[in-house]
Each structure stands twice: as C-alpha cells, then as structure tokens.
Design a protein around this nucleic acid. Structure first.
Length: 863
RNA sequence: GGGCGUUUAGCUCAGUUGGCUAGAGCAUCUCCCUUACAAGGAGAGGGUCGGGGGUUCAAGUCCCUCAACGCCCA
C-alpha cells in the first residue's frame, strides 16, 4: 500500500487533522436535521480568566467521546463551545494584568492606554478608569485568552462546531439574560427586597448562598457579663466569638427547654459597655451545650442571627458598613455616655474593633475570663479573602424554592426528569434543593457583567421608588441603564427629582450561565434552531457545580419552558495529583496540558481521561498517558501489517468471506465487543467502551494476528479468509477507538479509506458477522487454541530460547471434542508455534472437568 | 450532626443479576533482535478483596456493624 508510511508515527498528526477537519467542516451541525436525529450538548463554557488546566482536558474529553459516538451513529451533533468571559474572575484578571481599577464615577476616555499590559510591578498603584474603559479592557484581554483556549481545545481534538461559539458577555448574551430576567419579573419570579445580605467587604458586593464556603479560622470565646435589667446585681454570662458586635446586640436567646434561663424569658438584659436594654427570648436554634447556652443576637453576626432577628421581630442596629468598618453613627438607643464609648469603635475594621472592645470590657470588668481560643468554621465568599459580613441592602432575587415549599417540590421532581450519570449524583441535587433557605440573590455590585435592565422613578425629593420599575421596550435590549434611558424620559432627568435612575448593579454570573441552552440555541432570535435542540440531550459538568450551574439552569428552564433543560446530566470527577490531593495552583503541582500534548500526543492524553469512569475522581497519571501512546502506536503498526500482508487484490476483489474457524471465532468475539461498547456509550460510559475495545485489541494483536500471520501472507483460499477477516476487524476496531483516539484513528483510516473516520458509520454486529454463521462455541474453541499456543510460548521463554525456536514434539491432552476440533484447525497453531510433530491424547472426560494440557519438547538447537 | 462516594497486587483501576483457580495496565524480575511494531515481543513473581459479624450449597459481590479517606450540606 503506497499510502502506508514506511515508519508510522503519531507525532505531528494533530496539526494536520485539525486543519483538515476545519476545512472539510466535518463537525458542522446540520440544522436541517429533525429533532430525533439531533444530539445536543450543553457544553460548559470555561471561565476565561487564565489558562486551561488538566481538569478541562479531562472532562471535555469525556464529552467529546460521546459527541463523536453519536455523530458516527448518524446524529447531527449540536456541540457548541462557549466562553464564560463575564464576571468577577475576569475583572480581577484585568485589574492585575493592566494595573487598573474600575471607578464608575469616572467618564469614558477615548483611546485610553492602560499603564501596563501584563505583569505590573507589585508596588504599582492601580489607575482608576471608567466603567466603559474597564469593560473595553475586559473585552481586549478575554479575546486574547479565548484564542489560546480555542487553539488548545482544537489540539485536544474536541469535535466542537466552532461556528456555534457563544460568549457570556456578548451583545447576544446580554440580550438573552436581560430578556429572561424581564420575563421572570413579569411573571413575578423575580423581585427586589431590602434584606440582610451576605456581603464581601473587599469586593464590595452581595454574595449568594451558593457561593459560600466554610473555612476553619482561629477565633476565641469571650465570656461577656450582661446584667438583668430588673436587678443589675445579677449577671448573665454570654459567650461570644464576636464581642465587637455588642453594640449591634438586639437580644439574647436560649433554648426553650433550658432550665437555666426559664426565669429570664420575657425579661430584658443590659448589654456590657453600652448598657442597652435587650429582650431575652426562647428559640429552638439556641444550642444549650454551646458556651453558656445563651447567645447574643446581633444585626448581624451570622446567618442564625438573621433567623432570630426575623422570627423574633427584633430591632435592627447595624454597626458594620459595606466597607467592613464600624459606621460613624452609633445606634440611636444608646445613652450619651454609651455613644461616647462607641465613638472609639467608629471607622475601625472588625478585627481592630474586637481588640478595642476587649480593652473596654477589661476596663469595665465585664470580661469575666481570659478569651478561650478555638477554631471554628467561618463563612467566606468562595473567591474572597476576608470573612463575610451581613449587611442590609436592597437586592434582586429570583425564586428558587428556598422560601416556597411547592416550588421546591417542583424543582425536586424536575430532577427525576433527568437521567443522571452516575445515578447517585442525583442525591447531591436533592440534597441541595432540600437545604435551600432563601431565594437566589442575582444582583451584584460589580461592573463587568450583564446590567440589571431596569430604571426606577424618582420622587419629588429625588428618592428612588422601587415599586413598578421602568422596563426597557421591545427592541431596546440589551440596555445599560447607566447610559441608556427609559422610554419617555430625557437625559437631563437622570438623577433629578421626579426623574429616573438606572439600576447600578449587574447580574450574578450564574444568572447568565443558567441560560447556556438558550444562549447556544439562540432562544431570543432563532426559535427554529432552539426548538431543534431543546431540551438538550446532555449537560456535562463537574459535580461541584450541581448546586450552582445545574440547579440555576433548572430554575430558569422550569419557569421559562416548564420542562427540565436536558434529558441527561453527566458528571465528571476531579483530577487529583498522584498523592490524591486535589490539584491546585497554590500547591504548584499543576501541569500544563500543551506540554503533555507535545510529549505524549493528544490521543495519549485523551486516553488517560477516557480511562476514568464517569464521575470518579481520578489521579493525574503520566504513566497512563504512556500507555495511551503505546496503544496509538500499536494501532498504526497493526494497520501497517494488515494492509501490507499478502496480495490485496485477492482480499478485496474475490468476495471472499471468513471461512476458517479461527477467523470466524475472532469476529464473533469482536461482535460481542461491538455490542458491549455500543451499549456502554449509549449509557454515557465511554470508559467501559474503551476498556472492552482495548482488551480485545491487545488480544487481537498478540494472539489472533500471531496465529494467522503466516496464513495471511499466503495465496490460498484460507489466506483470503484470514485477510478478509483481518481487514474487517481492523476497520471495526479503528472505528471503535475513533471517539477516544481521534487523531491516530483518522491517520490509519486515511491509509486505506476515503473520507473522515469521524463521519464513518459506527460498527454494527451485523457487519461484523456478515457472510457466515458461527456460534459462541467457536470462541471457546479459539480459546483452546490460544491456550496451547500459550503453553508453547511459556516453554520457550522458560528455556530461554527464541519464540521462533522449533518444537520437535507437542503432546496435547484434551477431551475428545476438543481433540477433534484442534485436529481440524491445526494449521495456524503449527505455523505460530513452529511445531513439528503433534500428538493427541484423549483424556477420560468422566473423571475430571475438561482439562486441556500441552507437553512441549523443544528441538535441539541447530547450531 | 446529616447525605453521598471510595477502600481489591508496590501504584492506578476493572470485576454488571452472588457462581470456574479474583483480572488488566504500570512498576519489578527473567528471557527473546521474531520481516507490523525493540518506542517491540514472550513469560514470571506479587492479593487472607479495609476490620468484624451474618445470610447462603456458594460472598470481592447481599445484609448489619465498625474504621479510614474524600466530597457536599448543616
């Protein structure tokens, strides 16, 4: 075969085929296909804020194998890519890259040049820029990053249709996100409310429940002496980790059954330092075994405070502002003397205030013991560096069942509409939905994102009227309320009494990401396309974002389409480093994917990923990549052999069929593999499909090919049987491996077939077994032959002679049936083992279970 | 504290409704230049299947219990 290279290699195939696939458009989605012939994928849009890592390579490979499988099954595969370039990670990266910070009060500067483009010195002071300038820089940097991402994904061999690309900050994405939000508003699913809100003081933004994480932090219990209001000689010892919040204390709570505090319920206590009167209440959430069993309620120290405050109708006396510092104005209730004490705290950070408070407590003698050091979980924003505070602010929410039992039930049952892969992942969904305790907070006090598309009327004093917000008119979307105007108003009315004000906030990044099916499918402007791909066939994603991405997408789809957004959810595991720790940049154990592509080839890296069972955390393993590389190389060499063995004409032109038992048995075995691999892939189990195919492949190379090699070189009828079987098996194995090893299989396919293997038909049992009838018994017969071959090989190895060494005499002991079979199929065995004399002994089949044994006598060495 | 998952060879993992002597790859060791492949091939050694208890003719597999590790939630 002239097309077979002299020395096959997988090095360098990536660049060639990436280019060719794009030229030929083989992954192009056919949007004329009917819904039942479409397989649609809700691809996760990676965050564009740095670089792709092994986790991306891992999970995107899993999805790609499925896409390739379904494409070969004849589906039109809707496989888009999206870039999540909206949100805080991008903002942070832009700040660090250009040395700027966003100041919305500034005016846009045309032709602005940032002070740096990459690596500003550490001591450089950020240059404040306007919001439009800042967004320009975001756009500039994300465009660069996206190019790098695309190149890497192409090199990984993702069969994405790049013409379907979407981003989450584009004009289209903003229009989609704003349309969906306005429809939520219209139906009453979105609402605004002034309420206690988790607040990151460094980022200056509200944070949603889904974005929280607990971190263990050192703290200390302080024993504080409160006094009974009726009798100041009696003290109440309250233990608190946040004594600085005494000024914000609005009550005390103890468990209703706690005998120690029964006499206090309904009475008042006086706070230390400030002497403010606060009520004592029973509440079941108070923990009798924690500290002294009675807790102070502050507005607000933690989430439990919010519950107590709400359920017990307590006063509101916030002391910490949005900048994380104590507000200048002391709570009104305080006496002049107390206000003077409070003045020492004003303007201080929480930490400084705690130190000062402890000092004051010592002065007044109201710290009864030295603070007792503990470590305890503290709530952080997952991207933040300081503990969250809780401040009262006006925010927008979308209902998610956190406050509505019926909606919660509805969303739980939506989970049943999906098939989960693996199935136990549904528990995580149910667990999260069941544990929600508030609606979804979607507004963020940030800059780079989709603006909340609303304005508010101002009253005659210029105060905002939040009821009946002004919404954009049809065709106006997307809007930026800070520059665009509501219909019927003029620019000079902005901020003026009886005029209007734009909502200054943007939406949570998940408010856009929760619409990826609508974004990719062009819900707002191409209903024909959207109806063909929605609900989508599969949502692939990491199990860590079930509570965020998966759930929020479910919420939007439930409201907008009254259906689950997909039929399947496929959850990938984590990548762990070889020590079974989660890989992370801070540990310095991150490997760059492109280096691995260079070193082992893309297919080898894909092989490693495809070996991991769905949903299972997997160790990063270069060893596994070496195995993948060996597999790919072996496939090239096998193909070279099969295509080069014997005369090709007799194979293709005579219409020969598999007629030898050995050939038929091999194909029967292969048909079983085709069946298993197909079933596994239909159930999203690419790893099983690979494992079965690979096991067959190595057996095929080591045993079958070795057995028939000599016959295949010949020119007899038996040779035709061998060659036609080799060719058939080769074509099937290449296609079975195509989803996992797209480059190597495309290479070998190109040596003897026309068109791309990735557009070839997925192999079937029927084609594997065409032209003959054979039962599974044939496989047992072939196993027996292989067993004898194995015995011959073992003897040669133990004798430390070449496998080519001649065997003078082989005595095979077996039951009568096996002996008959072997006698009829001796040719291959004789060739493969270099056997001279063969003798058969029929064993007594009544005595023991069938025992096949072979006694090997080697010929004397010739020299 | 609740939920979920994991625990099988030195390492990474298969082992499907209980059923042959528990498998594969890597690593280790031995041998072999053999015309597809030495970036290869042929073999070998290595496991009381996390501990304990139970069901069964039969348990890695089912039940109970304990432990360790991981993730999610409180």
């Amino acid at each position: 075969m002239s097309r077979v290279p002299e020395k096959p290699t997988i090095d360098g195939v990536e660049a060639r085929f990436v280019k060719q696939w794009e030229q030929d458009g083989i992954y192009r989605f056919d949007r004329t296909a009917k819904r039942e012939n479409i397989f649609s994928i809700d691809t996760p849009p990676p965050t564009v804020s740095g670089s792709l890592h092994m986790g991306h390579v891992f999970s995107y490979t899993h999805t790609d194998t499925l896409a390739r499988f379904w494409r070969m099954r004849g589906k039109s595969v809707f496989y888009p890519m999206g870039w999540d370039d909206n949100g805080l990670p991008t903002e942070r990266r832009v700040q660090n890259f250009y040395g700027v910070s966003c100041d919305p009060s500034l005016k846009y500067v045309a032709g602005f040049e940032p002070p740096f483009r990459g690596d500003p010195p550490k001591d450089a002071k950020p240059v404040p820029v306007s919001r439009p300038n800042f967004i320009e820089l975001c756009d500039e940097l994300t465009a660069q990053d996206e190019k790098v991402f695309e190149d890497l994904f192409r090199r990984l061999g993702l069969s994405v249709d790049w013409s379907l690309l979407y981003t989450t900050i584009s004009e289209h994405a903003r229009r989609t996100a704003q349309s969906a939000f306005l429809r939520n508003l219209e139906r009453g699913e979105a609402y605004t409310q002034e309420a206690p809100t988790l607040w990151d003081v460094d980022f200056g933004t509200a944070v949603a429940q889904a974005e929280l994480e607990d971190r263990e932090r050192p703290g200390a219990f302080h024993k504080l002496k409160f006094r009974e209001a009726d009798d100041e000689s009696k003290s109440i010892i309250v233990e608190s980790t946040r004594p600085e919040l005494i000024a914000a204390c609005v009550g005390l709570v103890a468990h209703p059954d706690d005998a120690r505090y029964q006499h206090l319920f309904g009475k008042n206590a006086l706070t230390p330092i400030f002497g403010v009167e606060v009520p004592v209440h029973p509440h079941p959430l108070a923990q009798p075994d924690k500290g002294s069993g009675i807790a102070m309620v502050c507005t607000f120290g933690d989430l439990t405070d919010v519950i107590w405050w709400r359920e017990l109708n307590l006063a509101t006396r916030p002391t910490i502002g949005r900048d994380g510092r104590f507000v200048a104005q002391a709570p009104e209730i305080m006496s002049a003397q107390a206000q003077a004490k409070y003045a020492r705290l004003a303007g201080k950070s929480a930490k400084q205030a705690q130190t000062l408070t402890v000092e004051m407590l010592r002065e007044t003698g109201e710290l009864t013991e030295e603070p007792r050091a503990i470590t305890h979980p503290v709530k952080f924003y997952e991207k933040g560096d300081r503990p969250l505070e809780i401040v009262t602010s006006r925010q927008w929410y979308i209902r998610n069942g956190g406050r509505d039992e019926k909606l919660r039930e509805k969303l739980l049952s939506r989970g049943d509409e999906l098939t989960w892969h693996p199935d136990f992942m549904q528990h995580r969904y149910a667990n999260w939905v069941g544990g929600l305790n508030g609606d979804w907070l979607v507004s963020r006090q940030r800059y780079f994102g989709v603006p909340i598309p609303l304005w508010y009327r101002l009253d005659k004093n210029g105060e905002i009227i939040y009821e009946h917000p002004l919404v954009p008119v049809v065709g106006q979307l997307p809007v930026d309320p800070s520059t665009d105007m509501p219909q019927g108003f003029t620019a000079d009315q902005r901020g003026a009494p009886n005029g209007f004000a734009g909502d200054p906030d943007i939406m949570d990044t998940w408010a856009t990401s929760s619409l990826t099916p609508q974004l990719a499918g062009h819900w707002v402007d191409d209903s024909d396309l959207f109806e063909r791909i929605f609900p989508m066939d599969v949502r692939p994603q990491g199990h860590d974002i079930i509570r965020t991405w998966l759930f929020s997408t479910m919420v939007r789809s439930n409201f907008e389409h009254d259906v689950a957004p997909w039929k399947n959810a496929s959850l990938s595991g984590w990548i762990l480093d070889p020590d079974r720790k989660k890989m992370s940049k801070s540990k310095g154990n991150v490997v760059t994917p492109s280096d691995l592509f260079d070193q082992y080839g893309s297919d080898a890296v894909r092989y490693w990923a495809a070996c991991a069972r769905p949903g299972v955390d997997t160790a990063f393993s270069e060893d596994q990549m070496k195995v993948g590389r060996k597999l790919a190389t072996k496939l090239l060499n096998l193909t070279k052999f099969v295509l080069g063995a014997g005369s090709n004409e007799t194979t293709t032109s005579t219409g020969a069929q598999p007629k030898d038992l050995v050939d038929q048995a091999m194909l029967v075995r292969l048909a079983e593999v085709v069946d298993e691999a197909t079933t596994a892939l239909e159930q999203f189990d690419y790893a099983r499909a690979l494992e079965r195919t690979e096991a067959f492949f190595w057996w095929f190379c080591d045993d079958y090919v070795e057995l028939v090699k000599t016959r295949a070189y010949g020119e007899t009828q038996d040779s035709s049987s061998a060659r036609v079987s080799l060719h058939r098996a080769l074509g099937i194995v290449q296609r079975l491996l195509a989803p996992m090893l797209p480059f190597a299989t495309e290479e070998v396919w190109s040596w003897w077939q026309s068109g791309s293997i990735h557009r070839a038909n997925w192999p079937t049992i029927a084609e594997t077994l065409a032209g003959f009838n054979a039962s599974h018994d044939a496989v047992d017969d072939l196993d027996a032959i292989c067993l004898v071959l194995g015995a011959v090989r073992r003897t040669k190895t133990e004798a430390k002679v070449s496998q080519r060494a001649e065997v003078a005499k082989l005595v095979i002991t077996a039951d009568a049936k096996t002996v008959t079979m072997l006698q009829a199929n001796l040719l291959d065995l004789r060739n493969a083992g270099s056997l001279q004399e063969i003798e058969f002994v029929v064993s007594d089949s009544n005595s023991e279970p069938t025992n096949l044994s072979a006694q090997v006598t080697l010929a004397a060495p010739l020299n």
